[in-house]
Design a protein around this nucleic acid. Structure first.
Lengths: 312, 312
DNA sequence: CGCTGCTCATAACCCCAGCTTATGTGCCGA
DNA sequence: TCGGCACATAAGCTGGGGTTATGAGCAGCG
């Protein structure tokens, strides 16, 4: 193992060639829901033969029969039910992508203009936007992402109706409501000695250990610096990278321990690519997530709806 | 609202036309990781101009600049970072789909043959298979899904090396290990009065309420019947449907309360399409998830690896 | 009983998205 | 100043996925 190369040698063939495309998955879900190829075709705006062929191609690609066809309709086989659940996951992720991308492109005349910090925009906004769409369909949302100070500025200057920031301080001139907390975790690759550690990690030990970190100025870094300052600050970083993704990649490849938001590493913890290290009680790495708006101007209309959602 | 039609009128245009395909997302992630269009192209096995064009098309489709190109490489813009996180979600779901589908097709000569109940296969297997692939790459896995008795039979007859079942009883002739618990939740649509209920729901009240249920014989139904038997069984079902998906759809559309595995409704709870009802302490709807193998033959080799994973 | 209406399948044709190779341009470092 | 790497442009091919037209099973109704 040289340095930050790939851990095991990723599957060589591009995923897109081995996996049916979104259209095929959507079709399968429509068939499952509507009980008929033809109806599914109509819903997707294609012809019945197209749907028939597509589905057949899907089955041969997977090597499994997915639907039982009959002159009175089509029902999923057991394997089909299984596959459709997996397909639903993909389609749901794609829906989140869509709603996010749409908001990103959204122009300034949108009914609701939101500014959010990177962490919030990356991990929480898509879910909120989908939920908002469910309750107030047709609300055009625009999303601008940036660091906390940029968010505060946009809200102050009236360029955004509602802002979301994470961090220790509330920007002046803004009212805010705490909508949640973001815990920072100490994570390592699965093989790292700390991954099996049962003894909670005390602040002093973390402060003395070189870590893989975001560059100073990032929200994560601020919280860490503040928490470790009483123990003579964090040690000189092992690596200082410019994006959360880069930090994750380096950590997964075994370069060393890192400190990351639990939101960012949820997936990796689930599949075991990263492990969270238990922390001692004197090591509190929590920051609050806040919605912010211009002081005195309580959110109304769509902004109020979104705010209500985020406090669920 | 007639019966079990769509709640709000799903977005009309097929998702596949509004969302870039998996190949484009993969490309974006590769560019982010490798810092160069050309390198990304090479990794994906396409030519550099293809990658260039593809990425440009992606940017125009989204209406946002994703990468800053320079003669010395390409870096993501802030919007690019955002989009790439969302894309990663989609790609990860697609990876789960791939590993699942591959196992489903897997032949009997696979190194590890697994039989699992529907719930386990649908919601847990993909994650386990990805984790297994991370630790023991190259392990060919085959997956058969069915109800608990079918799983038991396959394991007993030596057609599967390891089985996973949920339920109250351990099939005879098999040894087992509890690997987790599946909590059943009472869920309703967001508008249902119970959705805002703060007072925990007692067993007697649930027993007296008509519910949307799976047909009797399903694992979920068994647990519910057992839990409500002391309170003179569950009331006559409001609807009796043949798949978890159908139950979810009916519940979301407001037909009434349902009882579903927490695994099955995780997504819907997150986006607020369904709400979980708080349960009184006398209402314990939990079943254990068990790994099973032929009595006396402790799993070895790949089966042992997988078993170890599932107990994480 | 046969008509009508639903189901899905097959056949023949068409088009464009996305690939290829070949080539051009700009920046960097030796 | 020249090679190497970056990305862009141009011109041409191919096949996946679409279309319309048609046929074949099965179900219910007058």
């Amino acid at each position: 193992m040289s340095s930050a190369t790939e851990p095991h040698g990723e599957p060589a063939a591009p995923l897109a060639h081995r996996v049916p495309d979104l259209g095929a998955m959507e079709l399968l879900l429509a068939v499952a829901r509507l009980g008929s190829l033809g109806r599914a075709a109509r819903e997707l705006g294609i012809s019945q033969p197209a749907a028939s062929g597509r589905l057949r191609a899907l089955e041969t690609q997977l090597g499994v029969a997915l639907v039982r066809r009959s002159p009175s309709g089509s029902r999923l086989t057991d394997e089909g039910a299984l596959v459709s659940v997996w397909a639903r996951r993909v389609v749901e992720a794609a829906e989140a992508f869509d709603v996010g991308a749409r908001a990103l492109r959204g122009r300034r005349d949108s009914r609701l203009r939101v500014a959010a910090s990177m962490t919030v925009a990356e991990y929480l906004m898509p879910g909120w936007l989908i939920a908002l769409h469910g309750r107030r369909p047709g609300t055009a949302v625009s999303l601008a992402a940036g660091n906390s100070t940029a968010v505060a500025q946009q809200v102050l200057e009236g360029e955004a109706d509602l802002g979301f920031v994470e961090g220790l301080d509330v920007p002046t001139g803004l009212d805010s409501a705490v909508i949640g907390h973001d815990r920072l975790l100490v994570v390592t690759a699965a093989h790292h000695p700390w991954a099996r550690r049962r003894l909670p990690l005390p602040a002093a030990e973390l402060a003395a250990t070189p870590l893989i970190l975001r560059e100073s100025g990032s929200g994560t870094r601020q919280v860490l610096d503040a928490a470790l300052a009483p123990h003579s600050g964090p040690a000189a970083p092992l690596l200082e990278l410019s994006s959360t993704t880069a930090v994750k990649a380096a950590t997964v490849s075994g370069a060393g321990p890192a400190v990351l938001s639990e939101l960012a590493v949820e997936e990796e913890l689930g599949t075991g690519r990263l492990a969270a290290v238990p922390l001692a009680p004197d090591l509190v790495l929590t920051r609050s997530l806040r919605a912010v708006w211009p002081a005195g101007h309580r959110p109304t209309g769509p902004a109020r709806d979104l705010l209500a959602l985020t406090r669920g």
